[in-house]
Design a binder for these strands. Sequence first.
DNA 1: CTGTTAGCGCGTTCAA
DNA 2: TTGAACGCGCTAACAG
Lengths: 333, 333
Amino acid sequence: MAMPTIYDVARHAGVSPATVSRVLNGRSTVDAALRERVNAAAQQLGYRPNSLARNLRRSTTNLWAVVISDINNPFFTALVRGVEDVGQGLGYSVVLCNSDENPDKEADYLRALLADQISGFIVSPTSRTENLAALCDAGRAVVAIDRRPRGIAVDTVLVDNEHGARQATAHLVEQGFRRIACITGPARLSTASRRLRGYRAALRAAGITPDPELERHADFRQRGGYAAMADLLAIRPAPDAVFVTNNLMTVGALECLADNDIRVPDTIGVVGFDDVPWATFIRPPLSTVTQPTYELGRTAATLLKARIDDPDRPPETATLRTTLHARASSRHQ
Amino acid sequence: MAMPTIYDVARHAGVSPATVSRVLNGRSTVDAALRERVNAAAQQLGYRPNSLARNLRRSTTNLWAVVISDINNPFFTALVRGVEDVGQGLGYSVVLCNSDENPDKEADYLRALLADQISGFIVSPTSRTENLAALCDAGRAVVAIDRRPRGIAVDTVLVDNEHGARQATAHLVEQGFRRIACITGPARLSTASRRLRGYRAALRAAGITPDPELERHADFRQRGGYAAMADLLAIRPAPDAVFVTNNLMTVGALECLADNDIRVPDTIGVVGFDDVPWATFIRPPLSTVTQPTYELGRTAATLLKARIDDPDRPPETATLRTTLHARASSRHQ
DNA sequence: CTGTTAGCGCGTTCAA
DNA sequence: TTGAACGCGCTAACAG
């Protein structure tokens, strides 16, 4: 029942363990006949190299860690899928950790993972960048995703948040909305501030002065979106449209509007950020700015692999584009 | 920059590596003064045991693998969260694999993971149970989740699918619907067949003979739900209600109804299975049968730990209850 | 091109 | 109670 070792295979094939190792890793060239015998023996015994031993020897693992800040957010899980697909293809397994946007939790995870000889990290960093810096100092391959870590040179994968927010807001302006509100995330996160900046830029470009009263910082979660929307509804004169800068807060905002029997888009036009599966079948269908989520994950994985293969390459930032899907929720009557 | 080893700590504390090991694992009793010195040295050096070496020596890992069949399904990701929370608390890391409902892919993963010395498996098994059986034969701790693996004794965590389906269907009957259709999953999956069975049982209990024409087997995904719904709409006389047995297919069914301008619940009443974040704010709010998803994960993790601690305990099946949330989508006019 | 040897870092014998 | 020595399974040196 015990798994066969490389010695079993060697004995079975009448060669030395080193030769088996060479055949299995294809590092060095081995005589065709021997190679054949080794492969046959391995096959026959159902041999699989013990990755613990292999990794101890190589002092690295075939593990990648993805540390995201909200496992309940489909944006992050979709992204992880992109990472996994690339990672699997390259022989890596992926472990997923949920920092919950908590720098201490993030620090704990990273410290533990550091000891686990994890070979690569993909992190959506919390505001505190020391954690990430510590990883880099320890010489680990690191890619930041979704947010730009401040003051530290590391491979990074982002979307053009400012552009996406500008698209969304300009679309609302075009439709004829004038008092456009914005619900964005915590100011300390680059995603939140960039999207807010894009929103403001689009307004200015249309000759509208951004009104601070119409801007709300919430928590990127459903509850926060709900509260911010409720808050905005109390303003007089009321906003006639709202741009919500992530998926979960959009759920909350829509829930709030429904609870208050406010008609979309008649009373308030809505554009959300991120894709949601129900965008097309709710009534009215929801206008969204979508991120290439899966592609973000793939890109991060690719960058990570490049970093692992060449630790000295200059850090790179990949910026992907968002797409505006204009639907009925933002149609001006 | 290299991480300190147990030898470094030993030298620093003026003891032997064996003593350090003993202190750190608390197996054997060590003189208090020495223990103190060792702890101080470890602390000071920032020592973390190399889990590769430790695990090679112990020939096990601190890794759990969760093999689910659809990573795009929030049901599974929520479940994984429950597993992770318990696992982390016990010192395990969790790797996530996506079998995509493909027995071959499942087999590949499990074979690979077997070689990785993974200490515990939580699997939502595809129809083919040999894969699971192989794991058990190899003496690994295994818990099946969501589906009942046929012909193999293994710890299992389920919900009472039949009960949940009966609840949903009985509720529709109570509301006055009479031609109630059911869109369920692939017949080979116990979840799909149990839910179908519960649906039929509820109809019979109400004196309605189940009509095979109103039963559809789809793929538990959005597209399949859409197609099945379209299919049902062509039937004459048309169904006046539909029970959809998972979240993704419910999205598809609702999308189909919206595309055809069919009013819910006026023309067709709808009850879905699984919770969805948008259930309450779409119009009409969606009636659902929800599973205690997170709790399912926690339960599986707890069972897994028990199995690891005592490989000889008799296999156990935990069955959790569903909850019916009756909302406007199933209100008879 | 192949075999022998050593050691990755740890936990666990066995003596003392 | 403590330390010395060994080996988990593998791969990278080094010889041959």
